[in-house]
Design a protein around this nucleic acid. Structure first.
Lengths: 159, 159
DNA sequence: CTGAGTGCAAACAGTTTGCATTACT
DNA sequence: AGTAATGCAAACTGTTTGCACTCAG
């Protein structure tokens, strides 16, 4: 997907970088430091195309020469979550996954393959509208929602 | 909620018992035994009004004099899940929750309070329709879906 | 009588936490 | 310089597994 913003063409990589910049700004504004390990986690999240677990983020950084400890990855993700900069996703496969949360509130949902665990994304306006309608009639003050579809991915359907 | 089936009035407790009977039948049909601990887990699930964790089920049974071990609770729940008799729900609060899955396919979704953890249920036809439409246009063969709304429950809104 | 199912305890996986050390600001 | 943040290792929590024993069929 591409978005035209103020006349400039925004690619996926650019969008990631924009999120990273935004994240840094929010972190600083909240009085936190931009340490190297923390920045590395932000950078990894910005570069990813799909949800990743804490372990995957740590492994990826260590592969790139960083000496980051897993506890630091968890602490960075916890901070980002508190600041509303990432979305935590629990697909029920043991570990939590994380992905950047766009400041615009734009978001998508996920389909998980029962057999191979592959995760894909989708957006749907009708779904959002239905959820908004539900939120209005419930006594809860609804602030967020997760939708997870489960089934067989195209590869596994063939097999 | 009450349902009129073939002229008879079905209460919530009856519905639970019906599910328990159905569960036993399916378990037997699949060649498994109806041991006392396994039946106790089924009975506990049938009696519950909201989702419960493995620990809660075990504690509840032990309070009632049963000597069931937690491993047995997990094994019973795993079997019920395999047979499609329970739905696993992961609200992201550390542990998985379980509830009876009605053979009719009827189901509801959940709202979780961010602050106190309270879980409530809701049904919505528009939501189901929106999801069916999405399932059709995806390359996945979608078999199930979870929707979780998050926010503040009425009690916490007041505070 | 025989093996599916159980209970216990030990093993595991993901996540969190205490503490001495490091390094942003 | 001062303190937030890190890395390590140990602690914790939920869940799974190995094994000897039990009981449903």
């Amino acid at each position: 997907m591409r978005m035209t913003i103020a006349g400039a063409l925004t690619t996926k990589a650019d969008a990631g970088q924009q999120w990273a910049d935004h994240a840094h700004a929010v972190i600083r504004a909240a009085g936190h430091r931009s340490s190297a390990p923390r920045s590395a986690v932000v950078q990894t999240l910005a570069a990813q195309s799909c949800v990743r677990s804490a372990r995957e983020i740590g492994d990826s950084l260590r592969r790139d020469g960083s000496e980051i400890g897993i506890a630091t990855v968890y602490r960075a993700l916890e901070l980002l979550d508190e600041l509303g900069l990432v979305q935590r996703l629990d697909v029920g496969e043991g570990s939590a996954r994380f992905e950047p949360a766009l400041p615009t509130g734009e978001h998508h949902h996920h389909v998980v393959c029962d057999r191979c665990g592959q995760v894909s994304q989708f957006e749907d306006e009708g779904l959002e509208a239905a959820i908004d309608r539900i939120a209005e009639r419930l006594a809860y003050r609804v602030g967020a929602h997760d939708v997870i579809l489960r089934g067989a991915c195209p590869d596994c359907v063939r097999a």
